[in-house]
């Protein structure tokens, strides 16, 4: 059986937890996130006919009360970087997080999720900039926790990327 540890990163209240809530197997209470800063869930995906168990560390977003614990990222094979496009700052924070992760763990498979795609009218972020990232090879998926759009795809693509990653 193949297992991979992945992390869910992003600013506080970008919808990480909502994004996974409907799509993963949960055992633990969400209060763990506010107490120890992480909640571990599970998601099984199929890649090339192979079953992969994604052990998903849903890490509490950074805020003034809590810094993200970098130790929680140890040993992860990939991560989802969640942005709330209705709040421009969350993109900058996500990029900052990515830089920190790459500094600590090197370049590992990751996908930038633009969440709340059901509220596209309220988006604040610069779409041109997003287009440039995509051109530069940054994988980006538009998701909605509300409609479920893009969520399964996000997990599958990350799993695929990890499976084909040389690491």
């Amino acid at each position: 059986m193949l297992q991979k540890k992945i992390c869910m990163l992003g600013s506080f209240s970008v919808g990480k937890t909502s994004l996974v809530r409907r799509f993963v197997e949960s055992l633990f209470d969400e209060r763990y996130q506010t107490t120890i800063g992480v909640k571990v869930d599970k998601k099984v995906v199929q890649v090339d006919g192979q079953e992969i168990t994604l052990v998903l560390w849903d890490i509490h977003g950074e805020d003034v009360f809590q810094k993200m614990r970098m130790t929680y990222l140890r040993g992860m094979s990939g991560y989802l970087l969640v942005v709330d496009p209705t709040r421009r700052a969350t993109l900058e924070e996500a990029l900052g997080l990515k830089a920190r992760v790459e500094e600590a763990l090197g370049r590992i498979p990751q996908i930038l999720l633009l969440n709340k795609c059901d509220l596209i009218a309220d988006w604040e972020i610069d779409l041109d900039r997003i287009g440039k990232f995509e051109t530069a090879g940054q994988p980006i998926i538009r998701t909605s926790a509300k409609t479920g759009e893009g969520v399964e795809e996000a997990f599958s693509r990350l799993a695929e990327a990890m499976l084909h990653s040389p690491s």
């Binding site: 055992l27 633990f28 763990y32 571990v40 599970k42 052990v55 140890r74 040993g75």
Partner: peptide, 28 residues
């Protein structure tokens, strides 16, 4: 390093939760 469950064994008649999540949480 990863907090992934490599092996999980249970005593007879013990109902256990999903080991991958439990192992992850233990590591966390």
């Amino acid at each position: 390093e990863t907090g992934l469950a490599l092996v999980h064994v249970t005593a007879a008649s013990v109902r256990a939760e999903d080991p991958s999540m439990v192992a992850g949480m233990l590591s966390a």
